[in-house]
Every structure is written in C-alpha cells, then in structure tokens.
C-alpha cells in the first residue's frame, strides 16, 4: 500500500494484490460453502436435539463417566501402557525431527537462489542453476504431500513401526525445513562472506566461517518449531504406520473403548504441552 504511493503518480496504478485477493478469497469461500451446504452436508443436523444428545453421550464416555467395567482412568495397566506409548511417540517425533534436520542441513545450500546463481562466491554455472531448481523442486514436492500420505506410501516398503512413522514425518518436514533454511541463506548479510573471500578464503572456508555460523541459529530455531508440529502429527501418522499412541488410538476407537481413547488423548495433550515448553526452552539456548 505504501509502495504505491512511493511509486509516484506518473505510473499507471497496478493491480491491488491484497484487495483483489481478499475479494477472490471471499468469492471462493461463498462458492465453497454453497457447494458443501447444497449437498448432504449435515449442517442442519447440527441443530437437532438427537445430535447433541449423542455427542453428550460420547463425551461422557470419553471422560470415563460411563463405562462397562473399570474406567481406563482408574486402571494401572492402562496408564502404564499409555505412558510407554507416550515415550515411544516422543522418540518418534525426535527421530523424525533429527532425520529431517540432518537431510535439510546437507542439502539446503543449492536451494538458495544467491548460491545457485553464483551471486555469493563462485561463478554462475549451469550446474548451480540446475541444482537450484532440482533442490527447490524436491523441497516443494516433499512439502506439498502431507505426512499421512507419505506414511500410506511408506508402509508398502517398510514394516509398520517407529522407523516408518518417523520417516514419513521426516520427508514432509524435510521440504519445509529445506525451504526455510534456503530462504535464510538468501536473506543473509553478504558482507562476512565478501570479507573472507577478499582475504583469500576458498569456497569451503567461506561456507564454514561465514555462512554456517549465520544460518545455524535460525535453522535450529526452525527445527525446534517444527518439532512442536511434529509431535502433534505423530499420532496421526501412527494411525497407519502403527507406532506410538496413534495405533492404540485407532484400535480403541474401532473397539468403541472411548474411555481408553480419553486416556490416550490426555497423554497426547501432556506430550504436546511438554514439547512446546521444551522447545521454547531450547530455543532460548539457541539465541
């Protein structure tokens, strides 16, 4: 908006991107709602007494107020199992973050426009430009496909378990981390690298002493943020990749053991809050 004023009055007004986009989004929203509500959407059922009665029943069973036998919340064996699965889920999330972080750290560099196009050290080469597009394409592809879909594909090759789940989570997050770190490199202060090169440093030395020290803190921060997202998603991937809380959640849902589901949800919430706190603490160390 300010940029238009700065451009001066001599120029023809260009398309107002935010305004047209907002209008476009509103139009899209209207069409989408009409499309959904015009079918058998279940919208009107939301306003019936039966729906709310059933939802209330489900909620009561979820919190263990209505069970056949002992509620899972009062059963030591259920707690023990849930805690073991929580630890396994935590390990899955750490492993996923670790694999994604390591892979992104090894490959983000060619994905930065200024590196690939030779603006920061080295000449512009066809190889660099090609590597830029290949890397960015890989980031876009891995990032666009959700973790759950990766998991569905991976269980065709790997046995269901911790590794399969972690790998599915890692592939998606690799694309996100790679893109973010490549963008960090693009926005770097070019002066340290220039100074080093002027002093006769080679490409490897520039990388080690100018690029990485600037990129790493930001990279670690992103990685820790992603860990918070990963722990939330680990349960979902566990539905198909059969690891951690997700598998047990799915089983208990299909056996209609809703009090067990409630216990697992409680553990899930504690895990999410715990990881959020741990990530915030670790991020403070990275600064």
């Amino acid at each position: 908006m300010n940029s238009q004023a700065e451009r001066g009055s001599g120029e023809r007004p260009r398309i107002d991107v935010p305004r047209t986009s907002a209008a476009g989004f509103v139009a899209l929203a209207i069409v989408s709602w009409i499309y959904i509500v015009s079918g058998d959407s279940g919208l009107w059922e939301l306003f019936t007494v039966e729906t709310w009665k059933e939802a209330g029943d489900f909620l009561r069973r979820l919190v263990g107020l209505e069970t056949d036998g002992t509620s899972a919340f009062l059963d030591a064996a259920s707690w023990k199992k849930a805690l073991r699965l929580s630890v396994e889920t935590l390990a899955m999330s750490v492993l996923a973050a670790g694999i994604a972080g390591a892979a992104a750290l090894l490959t983000f560099l060619p994905g930065a426009r200024n590196v690939g196009f030779g603006q920061s050290g080295g000449a512009r080469s066809r190889v660099g430009v090609a590597a830029f597009f290949v890397t960015r394409g890989a980031f876009a592809f891995t990032r666009s496909v959700p973790e759950l879909v990766w998991a569905l594909l991976i269980v065709f090759v790997l046995s269901p378990g911790v590794l399969a789940a972690a790998l599915a989570l890692a592939i998606h997050n690799y694309g996100i981390l790679g893109k973010l770190s490549a963008e960090v490199v693009e926005n770097l202060d070019p002066r340290p690298a220039r100074a080093l090169r002027a002093a006769g440093a080679g490409w490897g030395q520039t990388l080690l002493y100018a690029l990485l020290p600037q990129v790493l803190p930001q990279f670690i921060t992103y990685l820790l943020y992603r860990w918070e997202v990963i722990i939330r998603t680990t349960v979902v991937v566990g539905f198909v990749a059969a690891g951690g809380l997700g598998r047990e959640f799915r089983l208990n849902m299909s056996f209609l053991h809703y009090d067990d589901v409630g216990l697992l949800l409680l553990c899930y919430l504690f895990l999410v809050v715990g990881v959020d706190l741990a990530s915030a603490g670790l991020r403070r160390l990275a600064r």
């Binding site: 079918g39 058998d40 959407s41 059922e45 939301l46 729906t51 939802a55 489900f58 849902m253």
Partner: peptide, 13 residues
C-alpha cells in the same frame, strides 16, 4: 475422528 463419532460422518464434521 472425534467429531465423526460425536455428530456423525458428514461434510460438516
């Protein structure tokens, strides 16, 4: 998943 059990499988869920 929770909503589908609570209010039934529908686009609204």
């Amino acid at each position: 998943w929770l909503l589908i059990v609570a209010i039934g499988l529908s686009p609204m869920a």
